[in-house]
Simulated assay, not measured.
Amino acid sequence: MASRVLYLFGSAAPPVLDIARVVEDAQADGWDVCLGLTPTAGDWLHGSLDDLAALTGNPVRQRYKRPGEPDVWPPADAIAFAPVTANSLNSWALGLTSVFVVGVVAEAIGKRIPVVAMPCVNSAYARHPQIQPSITTLRAAGVRVLWGEEGFTPNEPGEKKPYPWRTVLDAVREPRPRTS
């Protein structure tokens, strides 16, 4: 049984469709994986949620638990949030936590849980004036945002490029010390 717990979170961007392979890769790295999805990502993967739960050995979560319900996941040792859409990135940086996975990563900052995030936005979204301030805010809070040469480079709208999943898993395996 793995001794380290990784919360693997994904937003609704095309790379989330490869999440089963990423879970397997994380497990091969020694992680016990708990998979969380935004509601739209969960909708995209609706037909495979039971298989993903069986693969991880944990329920796939998309929503907050009700008050008084027990937490069904063990505590996280690290969190990888990838792919992160413009909506999730900006919501997180602004502290808008109506979505379960965004709420967990927002709280992780205060709990000092190592978090690695890799956006997946095309170049049109990347030029939106809120994207860079959101990345800067999250980095200042201690989140390792894999953006640009260190991680994801935006593609042109409609362009298909491989998403660098291994970069995310390598970064979460060896988190940088927190400075904040």
Score class of each variant (00 low, 15 high):
Ser91Glu: 12
Ile109Lys: 14
Trp31Tyr: 13
Asp43Glu: 13
Pro154Glu: 11
Val23Asn: 02
Ala78Val: 00
Thr56Gly: 11
Arg139Gly: 09
Arg127Met: 06
Ala86Arg: 08
Gln62Asp: 02
Asp51Cys: 00
Val102Leu: 03
Ala124Ile: 06
Pro70Ala: 14
Ala53Thr: 13
Pro157Glu: 05
Leu96Arg: 15
Ala141Lys: 15
Ile109Cys: 03
Ala93Trp: 05
Asp32Trp: 04
Ala141Pro: 02
Gln130Ile: 07
Glu149Lys: 14
Val23Asp: 01
Gly151Lys: 10
Val104Phe: 01
Leu45Lys: 10
Val102Phe: 03
Arg144Cys: 01
Pro133Lys: 11
Gly148Trp: 13
Arg63Tyr: 06
Arg144Met: 02
Thr153Leu: 04
Val102Arg: 06
Pro114Val: 00
Ile113Asp: 10
Val105Tyr: 09
Glu149Cys: 00
Leu138Asn: 08
Ala141Tyr: 14
Trp147Thr: 08
Pro75Gly: 05
Gln130Ser: 11
Asn155Gly: 08
Val22Trp: 13
Thr40Cys: 00
Gly148Asp: 12
Thr85Pro: 02
Asp77Arg: 11
Glu24Ile: 03
Leu45Ser: 06
Ser134Val: 04
Ala126Trp: 08
Ser91Met: 14
Asp77Ile: 05
Leu37Ala: 09
Tyr125Lys: 06
Asp71Ile: 02
Gly110Asp: 09
Arg144Ser: 12
Thr40Tyr: 11
Thr85Gln: 01
Trp44Asn: 10
Ser48Glu: 15
Gly158Asn: 06
Thr153Val: 15
Pro74Val: 08
Ile113Thr: 15
Ala76His: 12
Gly148Met: 12
Ala54Trp: 01
Ala86Gln: 10
Pro114Ser: 01
Lys65Arg: 13
Val102Trp: 02
Asp77Ala: 08
Thr136Tyr: 01
Leu89Trp: 11
Trp92Asp: 04
Val104Asn: 05
Glu150Met: 03
Leu35His: 12
Thr38Gly: 04
Asp77Pro: 07
Pro114Asn: 05
His128Arg: 09
Pro70Thr: 12
Asp51Ala: 15
Pro133Arg: 07
Glu69Ser: 12
Gly110Ser: 05
Ala76Pro: 10
Val121Gly: 04
Thr137Glu: 14
